[in-house]
Structures are given as structure tokens and as C-alpha cells.
Amino acid sequence: MTTPVPSNIYASLKKTARTFLQSLPVIVGMLLLTSLALSLFSPEQAARYFGRNDWVDALLATAVGSIASGPPLASYLLGGELRAGGVSLVAVTALVVSWVTVGVVQLPAEALFLGRRFALVRNGVSFVFTLLVALLTVQTLRWIEAALP
């Protein structure tokens, strides 16, 4: 005799399957698009735009991540592939963090529910904090690497 699957397990399985199906085209599309971009632009070209100045890298990538919209999973894939393609770690970090913490596209909805001033200030603060998080994370890794024998 088989034991019936509890309804909460079934519901969670269903939700996870739906998330997977929704993420699948984004994951595949993001991988294909990044690969195409990386094939078009060599690591040297990527390094020409990203990698000369940490602040400029962080600022550019934060601006892009703030406008970008999509599941965070896609930002990780994009960031990872861009990093492999020669884009600086500061830029990649800023992109991944701002993707989730700053939402230009979501701003009207946030303003509607939580107030216009709150939404503007929170996104502004998050933008600045993203720059700091990206710079501090990479600087910390440099310190760790320098400290290790």
C-alpha cells in the first residue's frame, strides 16, 4: 500500500517545478547571450572597458544592474561568465548586488506600496551601498591574498 504524499510536499514540489520552468529559458538565454558577447569581445577588450579603475567599474556595473531586471539566478550566471571573460571582479560584484538591491524597473511599484520618498531614498542608499560592498569585498579578497603565503 502506498502512502499518499503530504499536500505541503506536493505544493512545494509544484512551486519548485514552476520556478524551474520559469527560470529555464532565462538561464539558457542568458548563457547563450553571454557566450555570444564573450565570443564577440575578447577578454582584452573587456579589460579595456572594465579593469582600469575600481570606482569607474563599480559605478558602471551598478548602473547596469540597477536597470536590469530578472531572477537573481540570471545575474549570477551573467556575472560568472563575464568574470570568466575578463571583466573585473569589482564590476561583476556591483552588477550582481545592484541587480537585487536597486530596482529602477520596480521603483513605481515600490513607491506605490511603500511611499515615493521611501522608494527613492531606499534605492539611492542601496545604489551607494552597492558601490561600497563591491569595493570592500574585492579589497578584502586582495588583503586575504596578500596575507596568505
Binding site: 514552476r18 520559469q22 539558457v28 538565454g29 547563450l32
Partner: peptide
């Protein structure tokens, strides 16, 4: 609020 949107598939179609 997760909805079965088609945005991802349109994105994939554009990349294709």
C-alpha cells in the same frame, strides 16, 4: 505571486 509569465521564453526566442 509567482505567475507563469512568458517573458523568459520571449527572451530566449530573441536570443535564438
Amino acid at each position: 505571486g509567482a505567475k507563469a509569465g512568458r517573458g523568459g521564453w520571449w527572451f530566449l526566442a530573441a536570443v535564438a
